[in-house]
Each structure stands twice: as structure tokens, then as C-alpha cells.
């Protein structure tokens, strides 16, 4: 399952510059708002679902080479965060859904890697 299909199914908004999301294939998922837990637990090419929307999430995602960040509950993402994401090649997605619902849907779609 690629990121394009996930974006379509979950009706996510892509905040970063347009690119071909069908070539991005997340292999696992991780949900947490604690950055150090993400540092310890999230895997390369994984999807990260979080309520955090400040600059440091980009550094974490770039260091871990995550496939994308899904920011939940429409947490406000400011322009410098989006700029840094574009700069570092991090894909930022947003949704009004809460983290629990996003994780549930991803699991239903078959993203079971943890």
C-alpha cells in the first residue's frame, strides 16, 4: 500500500510540496506525541501519527527517515514547519481525525508493521 492510497482513503491533506506519493510505501506505523519515544520506537520508512505540530517533529522525522508524518485533530501547522519539511524532504499530512481513528483506519487498510 502506498502513501497515495492512504491519503485518498483517509482524506488527508498534504501540507508539503506536491510530489508523487504513490512511490512512497510506508512499511510500519508509530503513534506517539513524545519525541523520545518516537526516536526509540519508530522505524525507517514508517508513518508517524501525532498531535505535535512544532518544528522539532521535522528533525525527528528526517533523522529517522520516516515516510511521512500525519498531524491529527487539525493541530495548527505553521509555515516555518512546512518550509523546514520541504527543505528536509519530509512529507507532512494533516487530518481533522483524532490519532486513534487514523491508526484504526491504517490498521484496517493492512498497515500492520510496528
Amino acid at each position: 500500500m502506498n502513501l497515495q492510497e492512504i491519503v485518498k482513503e483517509l482524506e488527508l491533506t498534504c501540507l508539503t510540496q506536491p510530489q508523487d506519493l504513490s512511490v512512497v510505501v510506508p512499511t510500519s506505523g508509530y503513534a506517539s506525541d513524545l519525541l523520545s519515544c518516537v526516536m526509540a520506537g519508530a522505524k525507517k520508512d514508517g508513518l508517524w501519527i501525532t498531535l505535535q505540530a512544532h518544528l522539532n517533529i521535522i528533525a525527528v522525522a528526517a533523522l529517522l527517515e520516516l515516510s511521512a508524518i500525519i498531524v491529527t485533530e487539525n493541530a495548527p501547522v505553521e509555515q516555518p514547519v512546512i518550509d523546514k519539511a520541504n527543505d528536509q524532504g519530509v512529507i507532512l499530512l494533516a487530518t481533522p481525525l483524532p490519532t486513534y481513528a487514523v491508526v484504526g483506519k491504517l490498521w484496517e487498510m493492512g498497515l500492520h508493521g510496528v
Binding site: L34, S36, T50, H54, N56
Partner: peptide, 15 residues
């Protein structure tokens, strides 16, 4: 609130 202070930093480093 920013998501820091999980108390995992030094533990992560050691690992």
C-alpha cells in the same frame, strides 16, 4: 506539552 520530557533521552542514548 511540546512532546519532550518523556524521560527517555538518556535511556535511548545508552541503548
Amino acid at each position: 506539552e511540546m512532546g519532550f520530557g518523556a524521560g527517555m533521552g538518556l535511556f535511548n542514548i545508552k541503548r
